[in-house]
Design a binder for these strands. Structure first.
Length: 422
RNA sequence: GGAGAGAUGGCCGAGUGGUCGAAGGCACCUGACUCGAAAUCAGGCAUACCGGUAACGGUAUCGUAGGUUCGAAUCCUACUCUCUCCGCCA
């Protein structure tokens, strides 16, 4: 959520920058609503002040005056009630409007319509030198007997999968490896709830705008399956004034659940786009003056996993048109997939400035005794585990369809060094 | 699933119709004392919005939404959440 005063003060500039994101954003109602609200608020407060003054005199008044003056006050009370109702209605409208407005892109973000406007910041490693036609990960997985989509369809429908044997273990090993690495880098491990309230989903910006993308429980108690650990972990500090020194850093592994509304027909084969996948997530609560430096560090922390796994990748600075709703600046890590002959997103690292902090009321004090200020929140995948499995399968495949495993994972695999047919 | 209790400031906690933005304590800030610290003493210390260059003034906020009343932290209703006990359960 943006700062209302800030929008009012720099309306044209804010609108211009928001429009860089593309899409038809209509803020035309804002100024009228904002002005109307202010006017009504002034009138209302004047009435309330009158009432309070009269009531003060009534405290010690006799019954007679209490009766007559009281009757007059009743009329004023009704006026106040009406004004309050109208103010509430205005505020609701303003609120609904503003909750659906995305974050303002940072000045360092390039303008662009879609992913073609993204800029490659750096690349790491090289494409593996495969002397045969590389297979896609799902072919490899199914041939090895380690990946079963058909039974997943029977059990859960499309966009689910069973992993078996060493491949299932690989997913678990990767999760443990990533958490260990990030813990070493100074992130505190958190095991979060996988179901969260509407308030939490609103706090991080998934709601109200993207309700169709979320899975929701059907019972009398409304809960949402988390689309990412970002939601519970960021809201971990909702409604708090942080006492510990910034940045505060967490790492959390969780399953992620996404309805993926509107993505029918995209990546229908394989593990790339699932209704459920595992992800290790990094979350930072940072000082507002240093949040963009923290984004650089966060991105490096995420990329370090790809480096340790020996996976060729590039770092993309997303353009205005390709960024997520709440983000002010985003780097995507894209890993090379030989089977697809393409780079695919495996991590997304974003700085949200105070956009989420304002919604979720996450603050800190510059120093003891100071007024609380909003923190800046950041997060990034470190990494999407399912897609990391895909990357390992495709990059470490051999001509016979077996797959080598990166050295750093061997201890996590109980000494297993390759994936063989089941 | 059954029974009960509760939700007040950064935290704990008092407060049953106006004198309450709210006692007291903790934490925190400033000053005094001290070589320094601790202890002690004095003072300060909620948030948001509106008006004002400012000093300052005003309004709202005691889980949420309604209601009663001239007036609600306090009374009534509904809702949400939390806790305790019993049952069940990984």
């Amino acid at each position: 959520m943006l700062d209302l005063k800030e929008i009012a003060k720099n309306f044209d500039a804010v609108v211009a920058r928001l429009n860089d994101r593309g899409g038809a954003l209509d803020l035309s109602r804002f100024s009228a609503l904002f002005g109307e609200r202010r006017q009504l608020n002034i009138e209302l407060e004047a009435k309330q002040a009158t009432r309070n003054k009269v009531q003060d005199t009534l405290k010690s008044a006799d019954n007679e005056t209490r009766k007559t003056v009281g009757a007059q006050m009743k009329a004023l009370g009704q006026e106040i009630k009406d004004a309050e109702g109208r103010l509430k209605a205005l505020e609701d409208q303003l609120n609904e409007l503003i909750l659906n407005v995305p974050n303002v892109p940072h000045e360092s973000v390039p303008k662009g319509q879609d992913e073609h406007g993204n800029q490659c910041v750096r690349t790491w490693g090289e494409k593996p030198n495969l002397l045969f036609t590389p297979k896609q990960h799902f072919e490899l997985g199914e041939k090895l007997g380690l990946l079963d989509f058909e039974r997943a369809v029977k059990v859960s429908g499309t966009r689910f999968a069973f992993s078996k044997g060493a491949l299932a273990r690989l997913e678990r090993a990767l999760t443990a490896f990533m958490i260990d690495e990030h813990t070493r880098q100074g992130y505190l491990e958190l095991l979060p709830p996988y179901l969260v309230t509407r308030a939490s989903m609103t706090g991080t910006g998934q709601l109200p705008k993207f309700e169709a993308d979320a899975f929701k429980t059907a019972g009398e108690r409304e809960l949402f399956l988390i689309p990412t650990a970002e939601v519970p972990v960021t809201n971990f500090h909702a409604d708090e004034i942080l006492e510990q020194p910034l940045p505060v850093r967490y790492v959390a592994a969780s399953p992620c659940f996404r309805a993926e509304a509107g993505s029918a027909g995209k990546d229908t084969r394989g593990l790339i786009r699932m209704h459920q996948f595992h992800k290790v997530e990094l979350v930072k609560f940072a000082h507002p003056d240093r949040s963009f430096e923290e984004l650089e560090a966060l991105t490096r922390d995420a990329a370090s996993i790809l480096e340790k796994l020996g996976l060729h990748h590039r770092v993309m600075l997303l353009c205005t048109g390709d960024m997520g709703f709440a983000s002010a600046k985003t780097y995507d890590l894209e890993v090379w997939l030989p089977g697809q002959n393409a780079f695919r997103e495996i991590s997304s690292c974003s700085c949200f400035t105070d956009f989420q902090a304002r919604r979720a009321k996450i603050r800190f004090r510059e120093k003891a005794g100071d007024k609380p200020r909003l923190v800046h929140t950041l997060n990034g995948s470190g990494l999407a585990v399912g897609r990391t499995v895909v990357a390992i399968l495709e990059n470490y495949q051999r001509e016979d369809g077996t797959v080598a495993l990166p050295k750093v994972l061997h201890p996590y695999m109980g000494g297993l060094t390759e994936l063989l047919p089941l």
